[in-house]
C-alpha cells in the first residue's frame, strides 16, 4: 500500500508537467493561428489594393479613350459636316433672295447638291469608322478584310492576310473587341510605324483562337512604358483582358513589331 502510494505521488508531478505542457501547446496553436491569419490577411489586403489600383487605371484609360473618341467625333462633325452644311445653308438662303436669275439659282442648286453629296459621304464615313456595318452584316472576317482593303488602297503597304476563322466562335461583342484591336494596330502602323509590309492572321482551332499582327516599321522600345501607353496598347490590353485572352508583344527599335493575342476556347 505504502509503495503504491509513493508511486502515485510520483505521478502527480508528471501530471502537473503534462498539463503545463498541454497549456503551452494549445497556447502555441492559438498564437500560431492568429499570427498566420494576420499575415495572410495582410497579403490579401495588399493583393486587393493592387487589384483596385489596376482597375482604377483601366477605368481611367477607358475614360481617356472615350474622351479622345468624343473629341475626334466632334472634330469630324465640325470639319466635315457642320462647315459644309453652313455653306449649304448660305447657298439656300441665297436662292430664296429676290432678284435672283434662274441661271444663278440653277448654279446654286447644283452647288448645294454637290456639297450635300460630300456631306452624305462624310457622314457615312464617320458612322462607318464608329461601327463598321460589315462587321454586323457579314461578320468579323469580312470586316477585317475591309479594314485591310482600305489600308491597301493607300498603296503604301503590302498586306498579307490569313483568315481561318469560323464565324460565331466568339460572341458578337467579343468579335467587336478583336476588330477594335486590329483597328488600333493598323492605326498605330499608319501613324507611327512607317512600315512597308503588314501581316495579319486570325486562326481558330478547336481549342484556341490566335490573332497575329506584324509590321516591319519603326518599332519601339518595350521598356518605354509611357510611349507604349500612348500607342493605345493599354486599350488593346484591356480589350484582350475583357475577352479573356493573353497578349504577347514583341518589338525593337527599327525592327518592327509583332503582337499575338491568344484565347483559349472552352
Amino acid at each position: 500500500m505504502q509503495n503504491n502510494l509513493a508511486e502515485e505521488i510520483q505521478i502527480i508531478p508528471i501530471i502537473l508537467i503534462g498539463i503545463s505542457l498541454l497549456i503551452l501547446m494549445s497556447a502555441a496553436i492559438v498564437l500560431f493561428f492568429y499570427l498566420s491569419r494576420k499575415k495572410i490577411v495582410k497579403t490579401e489586403l495588399e493583393k486587393a489594393t493592387l487589384e483596385i489600383q489596376h482597375q482604377r487605371e483601366m477605368l481611367q484609360t477607358t475614360l481617356l479613350t472615350q474622351e479622345d473618341e468624343r473629341k475626334r467625333i466632334a472634330q469630324d462633325l465640325h470639319d466635315d459636316i457642320s462647315s459644309k452644311l453652313n455653306i449649304v445653308s448660305l447657298h439656300a438662303s441665297l436662292v430664296r433672295e429676290e432678284g435672283i436669275t434662274p441661271q444663278e439659282a440653277n448654279t446654286l442648286g447644283a452647288k448645294i447638291a454637290g456639297i450635300t453629296t460630300t456631306v452624305l459621304e462624310s457622314s457615312r464615313r464617320i458612322a462607318h469608322a464608329l461601327l463598321p456595318p460589315s462587321l454586323e452584316k457579314f461578320g468579323l472576317v469580312a470586316a477585317l478584310e475591309e479594314l485591310c482593303d482600305q489600308l491597301e488602297s493607300s498603296k503604301k503597304y503590302e498586306i498579307t492576310t490569313v483568315f481561318q476563322y469560323e464565324e460565331e466562335i466568339l460572341p458578337k461583342d467579343h468579335e467587336l473587341h478583336v476588330f477594335r484591336i486590329v483597328q488600333e494596330l493598323i492605326n498605330n502602323t499608319v501613324k507611327y510605324a512607317d512600315a512597308k509590309t503588314v501581316n495579319l492572321s486570325l486562326q481558330s482551332t478547336k481549342n484556341t483562337l490566335h490573332l497575329h499582327y506584324e509590321d516591319d516599321g519603326n518599332g519601339f522600345d518595350l521598356s518605354e512604358g509611357k510611349k507604349a501607353k500612348g500607342l493605345g496598347l493599354s486599350g488593346i490590353k484591356n480589350r484582350a483582358a475583357i475577352i479573356g485572352a493573353t497578349i504577347s508583344l514583341q518589338s525593337q527599335p527599327q525592327k518592327g513589331m509583332s503582337l499575338d493575342v491568344v484565347k483559349q476556347l472552352t
Binding site: 503504491n4 502515485e8 505521488i9 502537473l16 503534462g18 498539463i19 498541454l22 497549456i23 501547446m25 494549445s26
Partner: peptide, 29 residues
C-alpha cells in the same frame, strides 16, 4: 485551450478518487 489541457486532467481523474492522495495536491490540480 480548455479541451487540450483538460484531456490530461480528466485522464488522471481516477487518481483523484484515491483516498491516499493528499487533499492539497488534488486542490492544486
Amino acid at each position: 485551450l480548455y479541451f487540450i489541457t483538460s484531456i490530461l486532467f480528466f485522464a488522471s481523474g481516477n487518481l483523484f478518487l484515491h483516498p491516499d492522495i493528499p487533499k492539497e495536491t488534488k486542490r492544486y490540480i
